[in-house]
């Protein structure tokens, strides 16, 4: 079937989104076509707004609205401990447990040679820089328990230990191969409490 050019263009853009295949793109496009103009307007506005207002926090590389993200800007947080995670969504998962009061560092992925991702493609250099002034005493590595997440944890431990910080790993009460994002909050809270030395 041939779509009118504006619809085809919308479908093309929607299909670029992660997890959206041709069928879902079609469903979303039809929904927008059937809705009144305000719906489309609000969506377009929200998309532009999020790109205008949100940037990466220069310290932890989580999303931030102000100069620094909420965690980095909070004077109550414990600045002697940094929790290293893969993605911003992992920060959300850990914050939800309410068990953790330290800072974060978002790597932006994990080491995966088959995907062409080495330490240089991640924010490892930036992490080492944050450790340099001696304030940080412990780094908790909370990458996922996948093969790549575990290897990245080991790599970080090897890079960080010579700098004189304690490096720990959250206890693997998490389902193996599972994403932090899906770990239920109780499990994750307990995993944080029972972290082990790497």
């Amino acid at each position: 079937m041939l779509y009118a050019p504006p619809i085809a263009r919308l479908l093309e853009e929607l299909e670029r989104l992660p997890g959206v295949g041709p069928k879902s793109a079609q469903r979303i496009a039809y929904f927008i076509l059937r809705s009144d103009e305000q719906v489309a307007g609000r969506l377009a506005e929200a998309l532009l707004e999020v790109k205008r207002a949100i940037h990466f926090c220069p310290r932890c590389h989580d999303f931030a609205e102000a100069e620094l993200c909420e965690v980095c800007a909070d004077p109550e947080r414990d600045v002697t401990i940094i929790c290293v995670v893969e993605e911003p969504r992992d920060v959300v998962a850990i914050e939800r447990t309410g068990e953790y009061r330290g800072l974060y560092h978002v790597l932006g992925g994990v080491i995966s040679p088959v995907d062409g991702i080495g330490p240089e493609q991640l924010r490892v250099r930036e992490l080492l820089d944050r450790i340099a002034d001696g304030t940080v005493k412990e780094v908790v590595v909370a990458t996922n328990t996948t093969v790549e997440g575990e290897t990245t944890a080991l790599y970080l431990a090897r890079m960080l230990k010579p700098l004189g910080v304690r490096v720990t790993r959250i206890a693997s009460g998490l389902p193996v191969g599972g994403d932090l994002e899906y770990a239920d909050e109780v499990t994750l809270g307990r995993a944080l409490e029972a972290r082990r030395e790497l």
Binding site: V114, P119, T151, L154, Y155
Partner: peptide, 29 residues
């Protein structure tokens, strides 16, 4: 499965110019 994945990742790394520290981590795993 975990082991097969590690071998695949490590083989890829061996074929590229590997960061010595990164290779060490895969060796250990």
């Amino acid at each position: 499965k975990e082991y097969a994945r590690i071998v695949r990742q490590r083989n890829t790394l061996l074929r590229t110019r590997a960061d010595r520290n990164a290779l060490d981590a895969w060796d250990a795993r």
